[in-house]
């Protein structure tokens, strides 16, 4: 049994230290997914806490570290979609009003990174979630389809359309940059 599986087994038996280790190991993934979708750091933190509380209640049903990652991505994504539906009546933010995500690792090209973050944040809900799962989590379209309960072709079509849009907009924002 590897270390991650051992930690999971200990957490399922009620070891709080092991559960804390699991939270620390996955909190950036859950929080970033929520933050990119909700575009509100405080709300994202609240949602991420709810996800881990839910995980604590379902620890006995988690079979492996891979299943844990899949479960967290799936529950976070679906909670985000639900929260997005609840907030649907609120006006959409413009690109300039998008909040920053918080402490990010240093970027190769901060201007390009900031532009892309803002353009992704301005995408509609489902394409934004698909793009986030593809590039933040490095998931293949088939894996995204499983996480979101969506046909693979729909995922591919969201990706294709979003990339075309992002390419056009980034060229318009930053001038003649080859992307």
């Amino acid at each position: 049994m590897d270390l991650a599986a051992e930690t999971l087994a200990r957490a399922a038996e009620g070891d709080q230290g092991a559960f804390a280790e699991i939270v620390r190991g996955h909190q950036a993934m859950v929080y970033s997914l929520a933050c990119r979708f909700l575009r509100d750091a405080a709300l994202a933190e609240e949602l991420a806490q709810e996800v881990f509380l839910d995980l604590y209640r379902h620890l006995a049903t988690i079979e492996s570290p891979e299943h844990l990652r899949f479960w967290l991505r799936r529950v976070t994504s679906h909670r985000c979609i639900d929260e997005g539906r609840r907030r649907q009546r609120r006006p959409e933010l413009t690109v300039d009003e998008m909040p920053e995500l918080g402490a990010m690792p240093p970027q190769r090209d901060p201007i390009m990174a900031l532009t892309l973050q803002r353009l992704v944040a301005a995408l509609p809900d489902k394409p934004r979630l698909v793009v986030t799962l593809r590039y933040q989590e490095d998931l293949e379209p088939a894996e995204i389809a499983r996480v979101l309960d969506m046909p693979v072709n729909t995922v591919k079509s969201h990706l294709r359309r979003s990339l075309t849009l992002l390419r056009e907009k980034v060229t318009r924002c930053l001038g003649e940059v080859e992307v």
Binding site: A28, M104, P105, L116, L166
Partner: peptide, 10 residues
């Protein structure tokens, strides 16, 4: 560029 821009944040 997207991979670099959409990194995870703590």
């Amino acid at each position: 560029e997207l991979r670099a821009a959409l990194g995870r944040a703590e």
